[in-house]
Amino acid sequence: MKAALTHIASVVKLGSGALLPALVLSTILGGCATTATAPAIRLPAIDVPAAGETTPVGTANVDAADDPAIWRNAANPAASLILGTDKKAGLYVYGLDGKVRDFAAAGALNNVDLREVRRGGVTTILVGASDRTDRAEPRIALFALDGASGKLTPLGAETFLPAGHAPAEAYGFCMGSALASGELARAYVVLKDGSVAESRLIEREGRIAADYVRLVKFATQSEGCVVDDAGKVLFVAEEDVGIWKVPLAGDRLVPEAFAKVGAADGLVADVEGLAVAREDGGRAWLVASSQGDSAYALFDLGTGKPAGRFRIDGGALGGTSDTDGIEVALGDFGPAYPEGLMMAQDGDNAPHAQNFKLLSWRAIRSALALD
Rank of each mutant, 00 (worst) to 15 (best):
L83V: 00
G150N: 14
I82C: 00
G90Y: 10
V122C: 07
G128K: 02
D67M: 00
S10G: 13
F103G: 13
L142R: 01
G121S: 11
D86M: 13
A36P: 11
R101T: 00
V93M: 10
W71P: 01
D146H: 14
L126W: 11
D86L: 13
C32E: 13
G58L: 07
A129H: 05
Y94S: 00
P77D: 02
R115E: 10
T133S: 13
R118Y: 03
E116I: 09
N73E: 08
T37P: 09
G58Q: 08
L145A: 04
I70D: 06
D134N: 12
A60H: 08
I41W: 13
T133I: 07
V117P: 02
L81R: 03
G95N: 00
A129R: 03
T124A: 15
L155S: 05
L25G: 12
L114I: 11
I28V: 13
E53C: 00
R115L: 07
S149L: 06
L142N: 01
T124G: 09
G121K: 12
A51M: 10
A64S: 15
N76R: 12
A50T: 00
C32Q: 11
L23N: 15
N73I: 12
R119W: 08
A144S: 15
P39Y: 06
V122W: 03
D113E: 06
P154I: 01
G17N: 10
